[in-house]
Design a protein around this nucleic acid. Sequence first.
DNA 1: AGCTTGATTTAGACATTGTCTACTCTAGGG
DNA 2: CCCTAGAGTAGACAATGTCTAAATCAAGCT
Lengths: 124, 124
Amino acid sequence: MTAQRRVVAEVLDGEHVHLTADEVHSRAVDKLPEISRATVYNTLGELVSLGEVLEVATDKRAKRYDPNAHRPHHHLVCAQCGAIRDVHPTGNPLADLPDSERFGFAVSEVEVTYRGTCPNCAAA
Amino acid sequence: MTAQRRVVAEVLDGEHVHLTADEVHSRAVDKLPEISRATVYNTLGELVSLGEVLEVATDKRAKRYDPNAHRPHHHLVCAQCGAIRDVHPTGNPLADLPDSERFGFAVSEVEVTYRGTCPNCAAA
DNA sequence: AGCTTGATTTAGACATTGTCTACTCTAGGG
DNA sequence: CCCTAGAGTAGACAATGTCTAAATCAAGCT
Ligand SMILES: [Mn+2]
Ligand SMILES: [Mn+2]
Ligand SMILES: [Zn+2]
Ligand SMILES: [Zn+2]
């Protein structure tokens, strides 16, 4: 555990955290000015390999890094401002995919992304 | 309707078509060698604005362009080879998101991505 | 403490994907 | 036939991500 890894872990701590690599880097620099972009990317990659952090693709640009890897969940995204909340829908979407719609695939995972407008953006 | 736009439309014709912009460009060049990357991006952007084509983010790299914009559907993706099929699950995932999990958002849309292994990759 | 060694970090080159701008080309109206 | 507006083009630029070579560091050994 080096200072660099500790700082990345600190930046990723919390609820509803879904930062891009550059956002992680920028916040890490605030705490440890000499940390490099490459180290942030390397550390994020290691955390993903270890299963401690998830990559999510809720926007169509940069990957986002999600420390909430141990409680399965889905995402609710504001189409205006990009705010992201973790959500726990009821029901199992896997059960909603009939065999006739599986094309012979062995299906193991589902990602659900809800989109809408957050209260802030609705007020504005 | 110019030759360039016709070629982009031809490339995007068919079922289960989910090409990246560069794949569209590369196939367009086979039919019309002088077509430029910028024109492909411009045309794809226009088709998306018109609602004729959807952008999907099934992989975490490039956006994919989906001409099946008129029949709502979701996607089944092979984690090995990236093959993508259109699927039509039963049930309405919107109904599975209770009010207590909406955080005051006005939710209007859901994307569901199933992941697994396609028959080809399972055989290999 | 000083040395050795392997792992970690760093800077920056490079790659991929996407956007933008200035210029050229072309089709169609006068 | 000209003029013009829209369309297309080449290439610069931007954003995101990957890779490599060199510097640095930490840990064990003497
Ligand atoms: Mn999350
Ligand atoms: Mn599709
Ligand atoms: Zn918002
Ligand atoms: Zn496959």
